[in-house]
Simulated assay, not measured.
Amino acid sequence: MNPTSNAVRAGFTRGWIELRQLFTAAPDLIGQFLTPAIALVVLYLLRNREYPGGDLSVAELALPGLIGSIIVFNGLFAITNVLVLDREDGTLLRAKAVPGGMTGYVVGKIVSAAGSVVVQVAVVLAVGMAIIGGSSLDGAAAWLTFVWVLLLSLLAALPVGAILGAVLDGPRATFLLTMPLMGLVAISGIFYPITALPGWLQGVAQVFPIYWSGLGMRSALLPPDAVAIEIGESWRHIETAAVLGVWAVAGLLIAPVVLRRMARHESGSNMAARREKAMQRAF
């Protein structure tokens, strides 16, 4: 059998095992759902506060955006964080030593990261619709939009996460990455319509996938008249697919190159140097 096919199959098996472990360990479960749970509690408290000029509450408008941000933010960060940590503890070096190990490793991480995001989206959507309301998947068109936005958003986020995980040096750098990502969430119309922001900030937000993922989710989950609060009073499906598609294609082209370069430079001496550097920072 083809060695690459064996490696990919092993990667899917590895990803499924990691995903199962992720959702059967209490600390991992808390890490997965703590932030979404806090966000849902805040939205629940805002469920009776109506957005001016519409029939929906601030919470009802924000729930689809929250789902969009979970897809991009968690999809990107899951890959970044695990790559950095696995370089630190030698997991990546061990994968490199096995024939086809890097292929299986990357496939496994993509499967586990994508699976964890899909489960989070399903749980947040179900709980949000139950306690907040205002969102629904009414009809085949809404389901189709939900699925293609979910898939394109994951394709836009996961390769970028792999690139960042390959170039960032240590968990400290990963932690610092959360600050610009949270800034992007803040300006991307996730919790409040982007039209309330200055024009230049709207332009910045529209460069990145988080805004478009949130917009796509709002188009799938909210009533048609909710489009009145969006830029140009349009769901802009073509633009959503185009921007997310550009990010996905660019990431899929660049990520393999960066990952191969990282794997070539991975060695026991480099790992030891990183550990020594981490120990120096700790003391």
Score class of each variant (00 low, 15 high):
V227I: 10
P224M: 12
G216E: 05
V249M: 04
A250T: 13
A228N: 13
T240G: 07
W235Y: 02
R236P: 09
L252E: 02
G251T: 13
W247D: 02
A255M: 12
I254H: 02
I231T: 14
S219W: 13
F208H: 05
E239M: 00
S219F: 08
D225N: 13
T240D: 08
A220L: 10
I238R: 08
G214V: 07
M217Y: 10
A250Q: 10
A242M: 15
A242D: 06
P209I: 12
P256I: 10
D225G: 07
P223A: 13
A242F: 13
P223L: 06
S234D: 15
A248Q: 04
A255G: 09
A242R: 14
H237P: 07
G232L: 14
P209Q: 13
S213I: 14
G245W: 05
I231A: 12
R236S: 15
S219T: 12
A226F: 01
M217I: 03
S213C: 13
G216N: 12
P256S: 08
V243C: 14
W247I: 06
L221G: 01
I210P: 03
I229M: 11
I229R: 07
W235I: 00
V249Q: 05
G214M: 10
D225Y: 14
V227H: 05
F208V: 06
E233I: 02
A242C: 07
Y211F: 15
P209K: 10
E233S: 13
T240A: 14
V243H: 09
M217P: 05
E239G: 01
L221Q: 02
R218N: 08
H237G: 12
G245E: 08
G216K: 11
A220V: 04
I238M: 07
P209R: 15
I238E: 01
R236T: 08
I210V: 10
L215N: 03
I229W: 08
A255L: 15
S234V: 11
L222V: 00
L222H: 02
A248C: 03
W235S: 01
L221R: 01
A250P: 05
I210W: 00
E233Y: 05
P224Q: 09
P224T: 08
G232T: 13
W235N: 00
L222F: 00
I229K: 08
E233G: 06
L252V: 06
Y211D: 12
W212S: 10
G245C: 10
R218D: 11
I229E: 05
V227Y: 04
V227F: 02
M217D: 02
Y211S: 06
V243F: 14
R218E: 10
M217L: 09
S219I: 06
L215P: 01
L252Q: 06
L252K: 04
A241D: 02
F208R: 09
L215G: 01
A228D: 12
G251V: 07
L252C: 08
